[in-house]
Simulated scan of single mutants.
Amino acid sequence: LVMKMESPPTVLPTLLSNQSVKGCVPVDNTVENMLFGLYYIIIFLLALNGNSLALWIFSRQRGTSSPANVFLMHLAVADLSYVIILPLRATYHLTGGHWPFGEVPCRVAGFLFYVNMYASLYFLACVAGDRYLAVVHAVSSLKVRQARFAHIASFALWALVIVSMAPLLVTQQTAEVDGSTVCLQLYREKASRRALVSLAVAFTPPFLATLCCYLLIVNSLRKGSRLEPALKLRALRTIGLVMIIYVVCFLPYHVSRATFILGYGHPDLSCQTQRGLALANRLTSSLTCLNGALDPLVYLFGAEKFRGTVQRLLCRDKSGGSAATSGELKGTHESSLSAKSEF
C-alpha cells in the first residue's frame, strides 16, 4: 500500500513538456465537465444517505455483533470519509477544471480518495474471508469469528492505509497551469513505474483474496451445505454484488492507471491516443466513487440485522407505525437469525 509521492511540481512540467513536443495540450471539454460535475453530485447524495443510514443502524445494534457487521460498519465509515469531499470534486468540474479551494483541501481530497478506495478493497476482502469461514468452516472457526478480533483487524487496516497514504498530506499537490489552479490528485497523479508497483501491491492481494474466498464459497454451496435454499440464493447474490463492485468500480481504474503509466510518455504515442488515455483516467477515477453508492446494497444483502431494520422501517412507514406489524417482523427476523445466515 505504500505510495511514495514524487514532488508534483516536477511531475506536471514533465507531463506538459511531453505534450508540447507534439503540440498536444490537455482538453477540458465543457460538456464532459458538466456531466462529471452532475455525476459527483448524484453519487454524493446517494452515498451520503445510504451510508449514513447504515452507520446509524450498525451503531444502534444491541447484543454481540457479527464480524461481518463489524467490517461493514468500518466500510460505511470509509465511504463517508470520502463522500464528504465529493462536492469539492464536483465544483472542480463545474468551474471548468479549476481548483478554487487551495492547497490543503487538494491534499485532503487526494488522501481521502486513496484511503477510501483501499480501505474499501480490504474491508470487502475481510467480509469475504469471514463469509468463507462461516460457510466452509462453520464450527472450527467459531473461536476466531468474534467481533473483538474483527475490530482489531479493522483498526490495523486503518492504520496501514492511513500511514501508507500520509505522504499525500505533506507534499505539494497544486500547480498553476494557463492561469488556472490544478489539483494534481484529480486525474494528474504521478505516472512513474514506482507508482505502477504501488498500484499492483495495493490492489492485487485483496482482489485475489476476495475472488478465491468467493469461489470456494460457491463450490461449497454447489456441493451442498446446511443452508436453506433461500439463504443460498442470498449468499450468491451477495457474492455477485461484491464482485460487481470490484469489476465495475476498482478494476477499470487500476487497469487504466497501469496503461496510462506504461504508455502516456511513450515518444511514438499520438496526440489522440494521449487524450484517450487521459479521458479513460478520468472515467475510471470517477467509477471508484460509485462504490460508495453501491456498498449500501452489500449491507442490505450481507447484514441480517441491517436488512431486518430496513424492512421494519419500510413496513412502519407503509402501515402508519403499526406496532403489531413491526413486532411480527422482529420475531420473524430473530427466529431466522443464525451464524451462517448473515449474508
Results as ranks from 00 to 15, higher is better:
Thr284Arg: 05
Leu300Asn: 06
Leu184Cys: 11
Tyr92Gly: 01
Lys330Ala: 13
Asn291Cys: 13
Pro229Glu: 07
Lys4Thr: 13
Val182Leu: 12
Ile152Pro: 09
Ser225Asp: 12
Ala258Trp: 06
Ser225Lys: 01
Ser164Arg: 06
Leu236Met: 12
Phe149Glu: 11
Phe260Trp: 14
Met243His: 14
Phe207Ser: 08
Tyr40Ser: 02
Thr10Ile: 01
Cys315Asn: 12
Thr309Met: 05
Gly129Thr: 04
Thr325Arg: 14
Val115Asp: 04
Thr64Arg: 13
Ser220Val: 00
Val255Gly: 06
Val218Phe: 00
Ser322Met: 08
Ser192Lys: 07
Ala235Glu: 11
Glu228Lys: 12
Ile152Val: 12
Leu236Ile: 04
Ala68Gln: 10
Thr309Lys: 07
Gly102Gln: 10
Arg307Gly: 04
Ala78Lys: 01
Ala209His: 12
Lys223Thr: 05
Cys289Lys: 03
Ala147Asn: 08
Thr10Asn: 14
Asn33Cys: 11
Ser338Cys: 05
Asn49Gln: 00
Asn51Cys: 05
Val247Met: 13
Gly276Pro: 05
Tyr253Ile: 04
Ala156Phe: 07
Ala119Val: 03
Leu337Glu: 15
Gly23His: 10
Leu208Ser: 08
Leu251Ile: 03
Gln272Lys: 10
Leu35Ser: 13
Val218Ala: 15
Pro100Tyr: 05
Cys213Glu: 03
Gly110Gln: 06
Val127Thr: 06
Thr332Met: 09
Ala78Arg: 02
Val197Glu: 06
Arg131Leu: 08
Leu221Asp: 04
Ala323Lys: 15
Asn18Ile: 01
Gly276Glu: 09
Leu221His: 07
Pro13His: 06
Phe250Gly: 01
Ala293Asn: 03
Leu215Asp: 12
Gln172Glu: 10
Leu215Glu: 14
Gly110Lys: 03
Val2Ala: 09
Val197Met: 10
Ser341Asn: 15
Phe71Val: 00
Tyr264Ala: 04
Ser270Val: 03
Gly110Glu: 01
His98Gln: 12
Arg148Leu: 00
Ser17Pro: 05
His137Ala: 09
Thr171Trp: 07
Leu290Thr: 14
Gly179Ile: 01
Leu75Glu: 02
Thr30Phe: 01
Leu231Met: 00
Pro105Met: 05
Gly110His: 02
Met117Val: 10
Ala303Lys: 04
Gln146Ala: 09
Lys190Met: 07
Cys183Asp: 00
Phe343Met: 08
Asn69Lys: 12
Cys315Gln: 12
Cys183Ile: 01
His137Ile: 02
Glu176Met: 09
Ser256Phe: 00
Leu53Asn: 14
Ser225His: 06
Pro100Asn: 11
Arg131Tyr: 06
Thr288Val: 10
Pro229Lys: 05
Ile41Leu: 10
Tyr132Gly: 02
Leu80Ile: 00
